[in-house]
Design a binder for these strands. Structure first.
Lengths: 183, 183
DNA sequence: TCAGGATCTGACCGATCGGTCAGGCATGCT
DNA sequence: AGCATGCCTGACCGATCGGTCAGATCCTGA
């Protein structure tokens, strides 16, 4: 019955990704995941310290890319910041569609967990950049709606090829973002 | 200790609206609501048959307006449908900011409950209308992102006056929607 | 005055949650 | 052969969930 380490570990991770994306983090029990893998709940907790650690390992790649994008944003202002933020976030959203779907509406509470302490600040900076660092309400509203909308919606486009979805989202963002004042 | 019917009933409804908007439907227990009102959990269940009935009564006004919007949409096509959908949904989102926040990410599961059986079809038609009934992927993607983004984001603008928020969102939607082909 | 309905509550229920623990069972090293 | 180690499991734990119920308390009208 005993399989190689990496095998079961990876299967649990994959099953969790599938379930979380459909029923959310809180809406998925360890029992659900174990059932999908075909093992016991105790086995899930043998491979992962707790439910939160499972989520953290699942989100790690996406968070790494988000961090990289945050680094690219430092120093950029105005239209340049908007363009980098738009391209970077759209690409991230398309590549990590399923991981982002996990956050469905549970973003605020999930961010309270220590493993995701910095994400809130990063997404705030991303929103600021997409607004061209403008403090006009219209610009800030547009940036927030776009980021939230793409996060929320991209999971529903599982059947659309990556590059087609990326092009459509990028075109949308460029149309929708409030242009910064000409210097 | 016993208060008039409408008083406690209304207080429970208001407390539920506040708590649901912050921690979501599933994330809020009947105990939480009772604590906020200052009564027992049994009292909450005396005034409402169950948790779902409490949610249904809370959402009823917003659902009524959504139904009205759906009626206005019948027969409209192209740019006319887009404009009615944009104005109608932005207005609804602004007026019912808190009610919509309740749905935070729990939309899919909440729709399974019998009280919200028709909402899925209505929101599908709304998305179609906002896309100008076009079947181009770009138009459908833009419509979905805008609807999801506004739903998700409008709860965070509690400090912005209704008319200012409405104007900003409407301008955003008009910029962002993919224009329908000229005839 | 008193019966009866409306309002409210503490105690309780079964189900499910995340998590713990002792032990079973292979495998591989000495 | 004997032992250690990694993998896995059933049984169990306390907490919390939505919901039920019998009864206490209050208000009102006859």
């Amino acid at each position: 019955m005993a399989r190689a380490v990496s095998e079961t570990h990876g299967e649990i991770l994959a099953a969790a990704a599938r379930r979380f994306a459909v029923t959310g983090y809180r809406g998925t029990s360890l029992q659900d995941i174990a059932r999908e893998v075909g093992c016991s709940k105790a086995t899930v907790l043998y491979h992962f310290a707790n439910k939160e650690a499972l989520l953290a390992e699942l989100m790690a790649p996406a968070i790494g890319v988000l961090r990289d994008l945050d680094d690219q944003l430092t120093g950029k202002t105005g239209a340049a910041a908007q363009e980098v933020a738009a391209q970077g976030f759209v690409d991230l959203a398309v590549r990590f569609r399923r991981e982002i779907a996990v956050l469905r509406g549970e973003f605020p509470e999930l961010l309270c967990q220590p493993a995701f302490a910095h994400i809130q600040q990063i997404s705030d900076r991303l929103r600021d950049a997409l607004a061209g660092h403008s403090d006009r309400p219209g610009a800030r509203i547009a940036a927030l709606v776009l980021l939230a909308g793409i996060s929320e919606a991209c999971a529903e486009f599982a059947d659309i090829p990556d590059d087609e979805l990326r092009a459509a989202l990028l075109a949308l963002v460029r149309r929708a973002v409030e242009p910064v004042d000409a210097p």
